[in-house]
Write a protein that binds this DNA or RNA. Structure first.
Length: 562
DNA sequence: GCCGTTTTCGGCCCGACTGTTTTCAGTCG
């Protein structure tokens, strides 16, 4: 039983934190972090790699190669086990608090005997923390606040939530003087905090922020951090001539930045957010745009969505970056509900909305009858609906495709008979029940849907709902392989609370030649506008226009589905 | 723990800000 590069990397990162808590050499710790990055950034599976090639991976030496060997053999890492035995889990959990890192955990644990969040709360309330050298009353207050925040923490924001926070902050800034950077700009599906680059004077902006913020975390001339609508917002100030390096720095990702700085170092430069310094002469060259920075490094400009050190740096150096799909490439929406099931639009309204969006086609894909809560369609109702669709299509420039979102039932069968499905233009099959099945059962359930010749698309393939429901247990690699074999598309559900498949799943599927289908899952007209969220996931999954089903024109799409 | 046409020893990406300080450690991004 092997494991993925991501799993090995996560294990190494976890080990690095535990080593720090135990107070070990920080550079030994860095070795694990660097190895984690090196492994995660590789396309090729690290498991099963011959040892000579493993040792050739930068950052992996004999000791780490042995750790990889253990993990890939399906065993626990012996080092991790040893660390976990020597540090209680509740001590490790202290890392979840803001402002608490591994070194603080080490000291709290060893010098105060704090081994749980509750211990820490009591110690801070009794002013025992401030008896430690380097800790004071302010730190105690911060710790108590961090504990309170941790208890009511809701985790990461959806993009819609982030946009709401952003709208509030933007009102305090001046149009044209700022850019939102960070994970928001990289198009991530969830956002931890907002990062903004501003060219306005801090003396102008700071007072406005202070007045409106829930809490001021840091107040500075170069950076100010506030909590706004309960979320952390960081604003970096810079002059226009340094905008390029600052925006690049703040957009990240961290791993991408580190790679770029390493490339700079090997070329005799030092890169930071203020510019590019020649190490021998110390002369600083500034860049007003990111393009200038990329050009200095001999790289093609890397779209923000790709900046994760997942191979895009090499591709940019070799000039082989993919030309990513854009909203303009889309010809239609492939997952929409009407009033026939649980949506609010009539077929006529659906056609009109499609026309307004400039689409060639829009699917009507209502639920099948098996899903009681959604007023699903029976075989007879599907037929009736098809007639209405035909009538509407006579006077619409946007073709309404007759489709269905048929349930994949617990035993792997579908919610409607084959003879109903065969008459439809497109069939989406989705799991809407029995989320807690064992991985193998769930996987085989989805595979049987993929194997059905009438099924064209698997809807929201992992069933996750951001912040509310974890993905169900499913072996995505087997799903992707089967989808490739049976020429079944996998969906990116563009609803901002789903965004399922996620970016890594999309990249895998794309690499295996599986078609990706984009659908908003709109239940009302406004939700048809969610498509850009799905496009962002496609871009993060390295999709070119040709990788998506709905960049095809109508006849090509119908030909594919036939 | 890893790595090297500057190095097999002595480095490891870089900077802002805070708190507790008297020059810096820790955290964060």
């Amino acid at each position: 039983m092997g494991c993925t590069n991501r799993q090995v990397a996560d294990t190494f990162r976890f080990i690095s934190q535990l080593l720090l808590i135990r107070g070990e050499d920080p550079f030994r710790v860095r070795a694990f972090q660097r190895a984690a990055m090196a492994i995660e950034g590789r396309e090729e599976p690290i498991c099963g790699m011959p040892s000579d090639r493993l040792l050739a991976v930068p950052g992996i030496g004999p000791h780490l190669a042995a750790q990889v060997g253990e993990l890939c053999a399906g065993r626990e890492s012996s080092l991790l086990l040893e660390l976990q035995q020597s540090i209680p889990a509740s001590v490790i959990a202290l890392l979840e608090l803001d402002q608490v890192g591994p070194k603080t955990v080490h000291r709290l644990w060893h010098e105060l005997g704090v081994s749980t969040i509750e211990d820490l709360e009591q110690a801070a309330q009794a002013h025992r923390v401030s008896t430690l050298k380097g800790f004071g009353a302010k730190k105690e207050e911060e710790l108590l606040k961090a504990i309170a925040r941790h208890r009511r923490s809701t985790g990461r924001m959806t993009r819609v939530q982030a946009e709401a926070v952003l709208a509030g902050v933007a009102a305090l800034l001046t149009d044209g003087t700022y850019t939102v950077a960070g994970s928001f700009r990289r198009g991530r599906s969830t956002i931890g905090d907002l990062d903004i680059v501003s060219t306005e004077a801090p003396a102008v902006v700071n007072p406005r922020l202070v007045v409106r913020a829930d809490e001021v975390i840091d107040l500075g001339e170069k950076r100010t951090s506030i909590r706004f609508m309960g979320q952390r917002v960081d604003i970096r100030f810079c002059s226009p001539d340094q905008y390029g390096t600052m925006l690049m720095y703040l957009t990240g990702s961290k791993d991408f930045n580190i790679r770029l700085r390493e490339i700079a170092l090997s070329a005799g430069w030092r890169l930071n957010e203020y510019g590019i310094e020649e190490r021998t002469t110390g002369s600083l060259r500034t860049a007003a745009t990111e393009e200038e920075v990329f050009s200095m490094f001999g790289m093609d400009p890397v779209p923000p969505e790709l900046r994760e050190d997942h191979g895009e740096v090499e591709a940019a150096l070799e000039h082989t970056l993919p030309a990513l799909v854009t909203p303009a490439d889309l010809r239609g929406d492939l997952h929409v509900h009407s009033r026939w099931s649980d949506g609010s639009m009539t077929i006529q309204e659906l056609a009109g909305a499609g026309e307004a969006l400039g689409y060639q086609y829009i699917i009507c894909s209502d639920h099948s009858a098996s899903l009681g809560v959604a007023h699903g369609l029976s075989a007879a109702e599907v037929q009736k609906q098809q007639h209405e669709i035909e009538v509407v299509n006579r006077s619409s420039s946007c073709r309404v495709l007759a489709g269905i979102e048929v349930d994949i039932l617990s035993n792997g069968s579908l919610g409607l008979p084959d003879k109903t499905l065969q008459d439809l233009d497109l069939v989406i099959a989705s799991v809407h029940s029995g989320f807690h099945q064992e991985e193998d059962v769930m996987t085989r359930r989805i595979l049987s849907a993929i194997e059905n010749e009438h099924v064209d698309i698997i809807g929201h393939p992992t069933g996750r709902v951001l912040g509310r429901r974890d993905p169900y247990a499913v072996d995505l690699d087997r799903v992707i392989e089967a989808a490739a074999v049976h020429r079944t598309a996998l969906e990116i559900n563009a609803s901002p609370s789903r965004l399922d498949l996620d970016d890594t799943g999309v990249r895998k599927a794309r690499d295996r030649g599986v078609a990706i289908s984009l659908g908003t899952d709109a239940h009302m007209q406004a939700e048809l506008g969610n498509m850009p969220y799905g496009i962002q996931v496609a871009r993060r999954g390295w999709c070119r226009p040709a990788d998506l089903l709905n960049t095809r024109d109508l006849s090509s799409l119908l030909e594919w589905a036939a």
